[in-house]
Amino acid sequence: MSSNAITTFAKWQVKEGKLETVLALLANLSPQSREENGNLFYNVYQSTTDPNVIVLLEGYTNEVALAEHRNSPYFQKIVIQEIVPLLENREVILTTELKLKDI
């Protein structure tokens, strides 16, 4: 496993009529995620062109911290059991920062 910081981009397409429920669940999830030892940031955004598109930008100190987040009981309950069934689509991209040199 890498010791590099991991940034996660998650794009959720919420089912029609389920946005308020998803936002209420995120309001419960966000503070718990931010309190994790390995969490660097946890930001939630909403598309300006489609309000049913939610984008999460999350940072973790390393892959171990990300795994701990994903395996936490509250993540499993809130995201996997409660939010995912309310989504049309869910895309998650894990990244590490590239250190580009000036040319």
Rank of each mutant, 00 (worst) to 15 (best):
H69D: 03
T7G: 05
N43M: 11
L26E: 04
E91N: 10
N4S: 09
D50T: 04
S33P: 06
M1L: 09
I93N: 11
E16K: 14
D50C: 07
S2W: 14
R34L: 04
F9A: 03
I54V: 06
P85M: 09
Y45D: 15
A24H: 11
Q13A: 01
L100M: 13
P85F: 05
A67G: 09
P51K: 13
T49M: 15
A67I: 06
I54Y: 01
L29E: 03
V79C: 01
I80M: 14
S72Y: 11
L19I: 02
E97W: 06
M1C: 10
Q81D: 09
N37W: 15
G17L: 10
E35Q: 14
V22R: 01
N89R: 15
S30Y: 13
P51V: 04
K77C: 00
Y45F: 14
G38T: 03
V22H: 01
L87V: 02
V55Q: 08
L66M: 07
I103H: 14
Y60W: 04
E63G: 07
T61G: 09
A10E: 12
E88G: 03
K99E: 11
Y60L: 00
T95R: 05
Y60D: 00
Q32R: 08
T96M: 07
L98K: 13
N71Y: 10
H69P: 00
I83R: 03
N28Y: 15
Q46Y: 08
S2A: 15
V79K: 00
N43S: 10
I78E: 02
I80F: 13
L29A: 06
L29S: 05
L26W: 09
L94T: 02
I103S: 13
T61M: 13
F75A: 05
G38L: 05
E88H: 11
I54T: 00
H69V: 04
L57N: 07
N28S: 15
K101G: 13
K18M: 06
L56Q: 04
A27V: 00
E36A: 04
T8D: 12
L23G: 01
T95P: 08
S2Q: 15
D50V: 02
S33G: 07
G38A: 03
T61W: 08
I6K: 00
P31D: 11
A10V: 14
N28P: 11
T95C: 10
Y60S: 00
F41S: 06
T21C: 13
V64D: 03
F9M: 09
R70M: 10
G38N: 05
V92N: 07
L57Q: 05
Y74S: 04
K15N: 10
Q76S: 09
T49K: 15
P85S: 11
P73W: 01
A27T: 02
E36H: 07
P51A: 07
I103D: 12
A67Q: 11
E68P: 08
A65E: 03
K77T: 00
K11D: 01
P73D: 02
S3A: 09
N39V: 04
H69A: 02
Y42T: 01
